[in-house]
Simulated scan of single mutants.
Amino acid sequence: MKRTHLPLNGLRVLDAAARHLSFTRAADELAVTPAAVGQQVRALEDTLGVVLFRRTTRGLELTPEGERGLEALRDGFLQFEEAVRAMQAGQSSRSLTIAAPRDLTHKWLMPRLSEISAREPELRFVLVVADEGVDFAQANLDLAIRWGEGPGEHEGEAIESDGMIAVGRPGGGADTRISWPGCLNEESVSRVMVGDAGLAIEAAAAGLGHATVPELLARADIAAGRVEVLGEPKPYPRGYWMVAPLPQWRQKKVRALVDALAA
């Protein structure tokens, strides 16, 4: 019989019924009705072409044909359990590989991971710099954080933020606009151009001018007094998203990380 044709549900019912020698108790174990157990047994008998149980005055009895296959069947179920445990081992791993833009990693992600690590010291993190698209399979990633208008082709959750804000050195600095690739005034001519929003914050803190950056990135520098907010936050369709393909997204360790980062 081909593996694709193995009557696995029927074999599971056979194992339970043979252990209890009762369709009723087997039904309780499997959370189905006794009638459903009987139907599964009859279907299995039709498929195999043998009689597996007989009803006697003493109750339910296994036939010799039924007994003959039980040991191998139960060994097989033990192998299934081992296979499931092996597949779940990856979910119980305490190592997480995360890809994120360099400025987000420096300004937001590493401080958050430090807080998480203090609570769970057995965790191990591998950080990958990824300013553009990421290949989950090639990089063996668990989670990626990227800048965009949504999760794209993956599952995802947005990181809460107030949009874009203008920041400058407290007490004033150069009256100069600082630009970076992807900023709101990217197409305008600026006297200071830097590689990313994180460097724009540093340039503003150094007094080189003012920069419009994601509020999420500037949050810690604002709290530390390195820069101050100029004007009101501006809503923006783009933001930072935690994303992963569905299989990774469903993993317990990834879900726990997403919840911790979003908290």
Rank of each mutant, 00 (worst) to 15 (best):
A205D: 14
A205Q: 13
G172Q: 11
T176D: 05
A200Y: 11
G156D: 02
A137G: 13
E149K: 00
V126H: 14
G207S: 04
R124Q: 05
N140D: 11
V194S: 03
R169Y: 04
I145A: 03
E202T: 07
G133Q: 14
V192P: 10
I201G: 05
V194F: 04
I178H: 13
D175G: 06
G152W: 02
A197T: 00
I165K: 01
G207R: 09
I178M: 07
Q138M: 09
L141Y: 14
A166E: 12
A139I: 03
W147Q: 00
E160M: 00
F136L: 14
P151S: 10
G148C: 12
P151T: 02
E122V: 02
F125N: 02
D142H: 14
G182C: 10
P151Q: 07
G156R: 06
E155C: 06
S190L: 11
I165F: 00
F125R: 10
V189C: 10
G156N: 04
V128I: 08
F136S: 06
I159M: 01
R191F: 11
A204T: 08
A206Y: 13
L208T: 05
V126Q: 15
S190W: 13
A144E: 02
R169F: 05
L123W: 06
V192N: 09
A200W: 07
D196Y: 01
D142K: 14
R169H: 14
I201L: 02
L199V: 02
I201S: 01
E122T: 03
A144Q: 08
V189T: 15
